[in-house]
């Protein structure tokens, strides 16, 4: 049987997925945003888009780390698609944590990402968590 081209495979090719977990500390965010930048470069994003993603991931992580439970972790998942990277950044929070969406940083994040959303909900057996999901396209939308 001849080798099948990926494009003719029945299902959508599985996105490359990278997950990193760090202590929820500001000092570790440079590492996370460096990963984001590297993934975007290898996914052939244009240079502005690489820069935007790096900054968006930094912003999302900085916001979350500020709300994280002491001693908890920051979890970042990057799903690399053909022309897009989806990022989910998550921390465990106190019960009443809310994410300020009227801040300058949040507006910047909305500008940088092509799409951004916040999810609240319980994970790991009922512990409250905050997740920021963002999508970034490989270049300017045409």
């Amino acid at each position: 049987m001849p080798q099948q081209e990926p494009s003719s495979a029945p299902a959508e090719p599985r996105a490359a997925s990278v997950e990193i977990r760090t202590a929820a500390r500001a000092a570790l965010i440079p590492t996370v945003r460096a990963v984001a930048s590297d993934l975007a470069a290898r996914a052939d994003f244009d240079l502005d888009a690489i820069s935007d993603l790096r900054m968006a991931v930094d912003e999302a992580c900085a916001t979350l780390v500020g709300l994280a439970e002491p001693g908890s972790s920051l979890r970042c998942t990057f799903d690399v698609h053909d022309e897009r990277i989806d990022v989910a950044a998550q921390v465990l929070t106190g019960a009443d944590a809310t994410l300020p969406t009227d801040s300058f940083g949040w507006r910047v994040l909305q500008t940088l990402a092509d799409q951004v959303a916040v999810e609240t909900g319980a994970v790991d057996g009922g512990r409250p968590a905050l997740t920021i999901r963002l999508h970034k396209l490989a270049g300017p939308a045409l």
Partner: peptide, 18 residues
Amino acid sequence: APAEPSRDDGAPDQDLLV
């Protein structure tokens, strides 16, 4: 130390170059 009150109550950041 960062000027803002840090929530990082773990180990100090001396091992990282910031």
